[in-house]
Write a protein that binds this DNA or RNA. Structure first.
Lengths: 202, 202, 202, 202
DNA sequence: TATGAATGAGCATTCATTCAT
DNA sequence: CATGAATGAATGCTCATTCAT
């Protein structure tokens, strides 16, 4: 039993880390709190102390994980690249990180898989909606800038670009996270980015 | 209670139809057999009579639904189009059908969501592997034909094309099936296809 | 489906034969009607046609099997032996038959195992009570005759002899029917009879 | 709800006590865990906490009950009696205890009734086999000693003696535990022992 | 803080039983 | 006579949750 504040913080962190892994591997419904407890080296009781219940634990995951995620994207967008390079960079970095950072992938996978839960917990819903809306606006601006700068084809629908980004990221995280993916899917992150960029380049 | 063979067939069909809907809406683990039973207008017992258990019911879904799905693709590939048009057609038709045919979407959604289950039931695993492998080979041939005919860029990796197809289809089905999708995702099926095709066209 | 009376009789007989085997192997509660059906080569429905329900099937077993069993004993008792020989013969024949006739053993095993059921079905209860009472009276007479004839010790309690018979038969059937019996139990039917007879001989 | 270790031990003990009673009364298959729970004053959940599942509960019964049982026999065999007296004592004490100690009877009844289960749970199987083998060896030694000392007839097969012991104990426990025993069976423990001893005495 | 013990609602599954054919 | 289809009550088991310690 951890007695100091510091130690309690460690338990909390371990629980969250265990939770992403287990949730993303099994999905929300099939995940047992005991699994998470075991993976974190504590009993289920600790989860209740730190998070209240299963749903809250799941919600906490988002609040803690999504923020750095969006910060990460913002950093890319703030760097001194042209619009097209920004878009390319975002996708490339996503794909790259999916491949290397199992936790990052798990998190994203979770994000897409558990939309149902997200809709059930208003807290998550609002939380995610806000950031995505903001992200959407920034991205559309980037695309429009790209068009104005002549980097992107004039006849490209900015919404198609954001949709394509969302679709590719969702699909990639999905296929990559599935233990044994479809035969069609061979990774090919860089090549796919290239195709996409070629598809919108002026 | 249905007593004739014919009527039993109806019950079976209704169970399967109910099952796609419920499974794809709730996911495998969160689906209760009673939900499916109620939706089909029979008791849980009927499920056991027809399918044996939950897993087998799920497996039966695949065996019955995936076949027409692949037939559908084959038909497109057999038509008298050029390679690029075939690829475009496949994606277009998929996206279109996802939008209009709720059951088709649900089915595909299921397919992607429940890879875990798929891996647990060897029957499904083998079943799917075979068809996907075949599909993959045909597609690669199409891409290579496209390259030779000068319709597709020479420097395009055929595997990148199949991966892109898989990714787009998975992502699209996914985002569309999520009750309240990401802000980034605005549908835009046709536009996305156009970007993709432009990305690989010679 | 059997259509003639004769064929129906065959089904009935097969069901009863299957029933003794399965009941005696698994016990009443653990026996599924489908087991019996399969062993008899028909579906459960046939059981309901012939016997009404599980309990009735079980009851029918007794009525059909116990009669010949008591007849068999009576025959021994009616033969022209001395009292001691009669007692010896009964035990010997029982043990012998237990060893050789698997169905006979199963039947007896059942008889002892399922006293609970017997008590639940008044029909069986009365039925068995009557025969056993009669058997008891005859046996006590035999023992008394033996005492009077000086074949059996005067200080032997006739009830102890009948109890011993019952105990040995029950115990023997029991230990023999248990798949892997106690290490103590090595069969030894004849030897046990000899010990018993020596124990009561004048 | 019991919260301390001590109290948990009480719950466990009560569950075991309830379990012997219910199992031996209804048999393994017909016993519902809720019966045991109710009899012990807890919910079924507590059974799963303490024992894992039904089979394990049953197995636990053996491991906890059989040991004292064999100790009890050993004590008799270690006392300062002659071989014949030891054998007589064992039977006498068994019969006596069966009559007075309902739990002891129930336990023994269980032991004989559920050989099937015993064979299904390897743990129990090995466990019992070992003790019975040891018991058998000791008993055979006692019989041989009796023969050498001239207390027991030279022509008596030691295995017949152990078999008789097993048969009598099994049969007696059986007939006594059956709610309404056979008409033949009138108890008569002491008298039966006397007959047996007379049967083997030199 | 965290654990151990226990609860209870919910779920998959089994199985005797029904009954139209 | 017998089957196939379906029902429904019962039962073992899982798991989120509670709470005294």
């Amino acid at each position: 039993m951890r007695r100091t504040k510091e130690e309690a913080g460690i338990t909390r962190k371990q629980l969250l880390e265990a939770a992403v892994r287990v949730f993303s591997e099994k999905g929300y419904a099939a995940t047992r709190l005991s699994d998470i407890g075991e993976e974190a080296g504590v009993t289920r009781g600790a989860i209740y102390w730190h998070f209240g219940n299963k749903k809250e634990l799941f919600a906490a995951l988002f609040k803690e994980r999504v923020d750095p995620f969006f910060k990460f994207i913002k950093e890319i967008l703030n760097e001194d690249f042209g619009p097209l390079d920004k878009i390319q960079k975002i996708l490339t970095v996503f794909f790259e990180r999916f491949r290397c950072d199992r936790d990052f992938l798990a998190n994203q996978h979770l994000d897409f898989i558990e939309m149902k839960i997200r809709n059930e917990v208003p807290e998550i819903r609002t939380f995610m909606k806000e950031r995505e809306d903001k992200f959407y606006e920034i991205l559309v601006d980037v695309v429009n800038a790209g068009i104005e700068l002549g980097e992107i084809r004039k006849d490209v629908d900015p919404d198609a670009v954001t949709s394509m980004l969302a679709t590719l990221i969702a699909g990639y995280a999905f296929l990559l996270a599935g233990n044994e993916a479809s035969s069609l899917f061979k990774g090919k992150g860089k090549e796919m980015v290239e195709i996409f960029i070629t598809g919108i380049r002026a």
